[in-house]
Each structure stands twice: as structure tokens, then as C-alpha cells.
């Protein structure tokens, strides 16, 4: 159980962390970064699974299943597109040595 005030502390520290981490990212990485942060909130998957597991009615099971479906799409899709984009940056980095 997370106490109310402790939760607020977590909230505050996480907000500053997010702000600080992003403020040092160069413009060229903004699209992959938006995609990457989109992947990170895919953690909603664990919440959706817990909500479905605690379902006590058919309605709750239906909504919970939709939630898990959507969350899994967020997490997996977010990961796949971010990784694809960032891999390209690595390959151009390696190409550096071959330029005239």
C-alpha cells in the first residue's frame, strides 16, 4: 500500500526526473524519443492485467480484456517502432568511417 503523501513524493520526483532526462535530448532524436516515451507508458499493461485478474463480473472481464489488448499493443508496437528508428542511427554512426 502506497501512502498518500509518499505517493505525492513519488509523483513529484518522477515529474522532475522526466523533465530533466528529456531536456538534454538533441532535436534530431525527438521523434524516436516521443516513440520511446510512448513505449514506456506501455507499462499500463501490468495494470490492465491486474485489473482483469481482479474482475468479478462479465462486464469487468470484457472491459479488462479490451484493456489488456490495447495495452499490449501500446507496449509491443511502441517498442518495435522505436527500436527500428534507433537502429538506423546506429548504422549511420558506423558509416562515418567510410566517408571520403
Amino acid at each position: 500500500m502506497i501512502d498518500g503523501v509518499i505517493a505525492l513524493y513519488i509523483f513529484m520526483l518522477a515529474a522532475f526526473t522526466g523533465y530533466e532526462v528529456i531536456s538534454r535530448v538533441p532535436v534530431i532524436l525527438h521523434t524516436p524519443l516521443m516513440s520511446g516515451s510512448n513505449f514506456v507508458h506501455g507499462i499500463v499493461l501490468v495494470g490492465a492485467m491486474v485489473a482483469l485478474a481482479s474482475a468479478d463480473s462479465t462486464l469487468a472481464r470484457v472491459i479488462g480484456s479490451i484493456g489488456v489488448f490495447l495495452a499490449a499493443g501500446n507496449a509491443v508496437g511502441g517498442y518495435v517502432v522505436t527500436e527500428r528508428m534507433l537502429r538506423m542511427f546506429v548504422s549511420t554512426g558506423k558509416n562515418k568511417g567510410h566517408r571520403p
Binding site: 502506497i2 505517493a7 515529474a15 522532475f16 523533465y19 516521443m34 516515451s37 514506456v40 501490468v46 495494470g47
Partner: peptide
Amino acid sequence: GLAVGFEGFVLDNAAMIIAGTVVGAAGTLL
């Protein structure tokens, strides 16, 4: 991100609170 953070409070899930809030703040800046 913010919505995930809020639902993290509801479910007592620290990972959701932290990840959601980090994305909420980072996304706002972006």
C-alpha cells in the same frame, strides 16, 4: 502518461506511477 500515472495510484502500482509521470513530464516538455 499522466493517465497511466493516475491509474497507478488507483492500483497501488509504483512502476505505473513513476513511468506514467516521467512520460507525462517529458511529453509536456517535448
